[in-house]
């Protein structure tokens, strides 16, 4: 497992992860055949940059806390098949699946890192990061629940 020497180290890692996610979506946007899906992925990239900015603010001293309330997990991502990211005609349904699965992987990572952390401050930071990812995943799952699983 990756080693971290300081809280700053952890934040740098997380900031970089958000940037990588943004790059991933920007690249995907470039590949898409249809304008509306280009726009969608560009929007996701912007959201990742928003997450990055939030973490940068924390790195610069902004206070954060680990909330007591559990973030709802609709577990929609758990059962869906992976999306082929080499396709150039990804649908909106697939875009949502892709995004929620990415957030879930990130959530797992921070959760694992939190369990493995020895000192309290790092543990707290990882838990906060995991919570953030859980929120991001929830945002995609809710959109999926409302708009894809219409069952009509």
């Amino acid at each position: 497992m990756k080693e971290f020497n300081s809280l700053e180290d952890i934040l740098d890692f997380a900031i970089n992860e958000e940037q990588l996610a943004a790059d991933f979506y920007t690249e995907l946007a470039g590949k898409m055949k249809h304008q509306e899906m280009k726009n969608t992925f560009e929007q996701y990239a912007l959201e990742e940059l928003g997450h990055r900015a939030k973490l940068e603010a924390i790195k610069n001293g902004k206070k954060y806390k680990v909330s007591e309330a559990k973030i709802a997990d609709l577990k929609i991502a758990d059962y869906l098949l992976d999306v082929d990211v080499d396709k150039t005609n990804i649908t909106y349904q697939e875009a949502l699946i892709l995004a929620m699965k990415k957030e879930k992987i990130a959530f797992r990572l921070y959760n694992d890192l939190a369990s493995a952390a020895i000192d309290e401050p790092s543990k707290k930071l990882f838990l906060m990061l995991a919570q953030e990812e859980a929120k991001h995943k929830l945002r995609f799952e809710v959109e999926y629940d409302s708009n894809i699983l219409t069952e009509n």
């Binding site: 709802a72 997990d73 609709l74 577990k75 758990d78 809710v142 629940d145 409302s146």
Partner: peptide
């Protein structure tokens, strides 16, 4: 949730 909707959870 925020929209007032109760969403199904496994």
């Amino acid at each position: 949730d925020a929209s007032g909707r109760r969403r199904p959870i496994p």
